[in-house]
Design a protein around this nucleic acid. Sequence first.
DNA 1: GTAAAAAATTGACCTACATCAATAAATAAG
DNA 2: CTTATTTATTGATGTAGGTCAATTTTTTAC
Lengths: 193, 193
Amino acid sequence: MEIFKSYIKKRISVTEEQLEQITSSYTLTQVKKKSFILRAGEICNFEGFVKKGCFKIFYLTPNGEEHILYFAIEEWWISDIASFNEQEPAQLYIQALEDSEVFIISREQKEQLFLNCTQVERLFRIMAQRAQVASQHRIIAALGFTAQERYLDFINRYPKIYPRISSLQLASYIGVTQEFLSRLKRQILKPNK
Amino acid sequence: MEIFKSYIKKRISVTEEQLEQITSSYTLTQVKKKSFILRAGEICNFEGFVKKGCFKIFYLTPNGEEHILYFAIEEWWISDIASFNEQEPAQLYIQALEDSEVFIISREQKEQLFLNCTQVERLFRIMAQRAQVASQHRIIAALGFTAQERYLDFINRYPKIYPRISSLQLASYIGVTQEFLSRLKRQILKPNK
DNA sequence: GTAAAAAATTGACCTACATCAATAAATAAG
DNA sequence: CTTATTTATTGATGTAGGTCAATTTTTTAC
């Protein structure tokens, strides 16, 4: 629980009592490597804070291509926001890439928390705005960078995540085939020839 | 002011008095077509609600390529979130594409508003989360769709914006050259030959 | 209403990245 | 330890979309 409490304290000012109230609204859940915590079509009735492990949050096109929106390691949040808020079918899949542990809250419990502790609203506003800034960067990168630039940008931005995922996953994140990513890496190592 | 008040009422429950308090924190500003309300490098000290007109929010690469993040027409918000929140230099440009009117609030006034009227925090959380969902869709589109699919997706998603912008602007939004967009449009009209 | 500027179209050619197919290397499972 | 499975690499060839240059159409400004 400590990692979660210090995450909150860093972002909003709360009393120990409120901190207890917030964190006790969450339940710790174990997720085995490769298992899905959400599939497209389901209603996403949870929002999770990753205590330990690694997840990929992705979209599957009708013809089966996978596009990874982001990877979530320790201190990241996982949910299908639209599905969670509007109680509509999810568009996204969330799958564990390692054995993981997540603090989970349901829609109803979160609403309750908003009523009981008004600062929580601020926490989630701040989080959502930060996520928005990151997404804007990704849109710019996806539209304007070459594959090599996107690759180097990812390594640079997420040095903690990079060593924990396979090339196949990375390729799906930056939007190229695994073959082309392999060629990119060689080119970066030996720029001549 | 009516458009702004009804926008708020649709999203959070407030008394008439609170509604008055919120909207009176904003100042109406006129922005001439082609003029910039923000340039990269400046500190963005405002957040604006578009009452009338049209803006483009974009990024310029070091070699001068323009990438449009979004268009803001009536009822959209304009700001460089990172710059506004952290008081750091903006990365984005915001320019009027038509003669426009915007309700503006400063950083300090917004903080004041959060203190005086706690529901406002909720309004901005909801907004930020909705923006986040839209951004996620754009990331998926940018990585996985062809240029033609992105073009048709834009028309379909933003039928109100589409007729108000030039092809050049649209090309910069979907991430292709104006020449290629022109070919796409012809291809869609006459699929044979 | 006319000149000037901006936007849109078209053609010829080029390049970043995809696809398909075959190995090779690394992990996982019994 | 050995086999099966997943992951990474390499080659040959194809295509979506870019670049540069010229022309036409539309919009803006006086």
